[in-house]
Amino acid sequence: MLLSPVEVLLQELGPRLLRASHVGARKVPTRPLATGLREIDALLEGGFPRGGLSEIAGPVSSGRTSLALALLAHTTRAGEVAALVDAADAFDPGSAEAAGVALARVLWARPASPPEAARCSQRLLETHGFALVVLDLAHAGRPGASPRLPRATWQRLARAARATGTALVVLSAAPCTQGCADLALAMQALRAHFAGTPTLLEALEIEAAVARQRAGAQRRSASLRLALHLRAA
């Protein structure tokens, strides 16, 4: 009996064929968002998770902003678009450019308060196409404290990030995501290096520790030296 080409294909490939409706439902592992910093990427097993909420918490001069700028630089130089919701109004474009951030690929929103910042982040997360949204809450409102947003807000933001596959990274002075983060990094300053004649600030040594990671071993840390790149005038 002669078989039609379709029947031949079905016989040969039958077990390996998928229904079209199931293709979208398959869980495709996504590549994490790397920072380009070898020590940090090794610590995070590749980088910050796409479609997840990550938190970078630490006191003043603990390297939170440097880490966020490295992430922004690596993301934007790969041709992706990122957003920065700057509730602290602390973003320094000159410093970001020196860190390698492609400024034209960064959408900078400067909301006046943390609740407004949460609404901005929600809007950005609902927009498909942003690879990364950084929500800077460190020192928003008054220096030295991170504002408390309701747990429901964090849950909503985490859900929105999951839906669009965008990495949401929150910067804060102290842990504030109330257990909703897929990844929490605790930052700490180790020492500052001043050297030369005349004396100049050369670098800052910091330590990053994984305080929480949903799919990975807990409590690992790495130290890193952050060098000061002077911007050409």
Partner: peptide, 16 residues
């Protein structure tokens, strides 16, 4: 720096 550096060094950032 932003156009020609192909590697990503750990740069110390400023918060304004």
């Amino acid at each position: 720096p932003s156009e020609t550096r192909s590697d990503f060094t750990a740069a110390l950032a400023l918060r304004a």
